[in-house]
């Protein structure tokens, strides 16, 4: 798992400054990866199974509503990165923002994948986004 997240997050290059590499690899990457997966899955569950099935809301199932959740998820992924790097006391570096942006992009991808998984289980939004 650690190796997978390390691979995923080092697609944008090695952590900077180099001295913080062990913290990023051992702590921050796994935390970010798991949180990102969990939050994306959670938001997809809320959209498809809570709002559009359990609560039976009929007016929140369009592509634009789905996009709200998509963007919300990306924003959360961005700020989770800022929070995690702060919490682990790594050195301030522009890399943190590159990492946050990359995590937001990964958040978009995860949310999309979970949408494909969950949409068929939904009653009102089974064809959102397509």
């Amino acid at each position: 798992m650690k190796a997978f997240f390390r691979f995923l997050y080092e697609l944008i290059g090695n952590p900077q400054p180099p001295a913080d590499t062990p913290v990023y690899r051992d702590v921050i990457f796994p935390n970010l990866g798991l949180l990102n997966l969990g939050i994306s899955a959670g938001l997809a569950l809320v959209f498809y199974l809570l709002i559009n099935r359990a609560m039976g809301v009929a007016t929140f199932n369009k592509g634009r509503h789905w996009s709200i959740f998509l963007v919300l998820n990306a924003l959360i992924a961005f700020f989770v990165t800022i929070w995690q790097t702060n919490a682990q006391q790594v050195t301030d570096h522009s890399y943190i923002y590159w990492l946050a942006t990359w995590n937001a992009i990964l958040g978009l991808a995860w949310f999309f994948i979970f949408s494909l998984l969950f949409k068929r289980a939904s009653t009102n939004a089974s064809t959102t986004p397509f």
Binding site: V27, N31, L35, L37, G38, A41, L45, L49, Q88, L117
Partner: peptide, 19 residues
Amino acid sequence: PRLLPALGLSLFLSGCYSR
């Protein structure tokens, strides 16, 4: 009950790392 994969995901989250 069909949503077992999500349960699996939530189990991941218990493996949170800290320094």
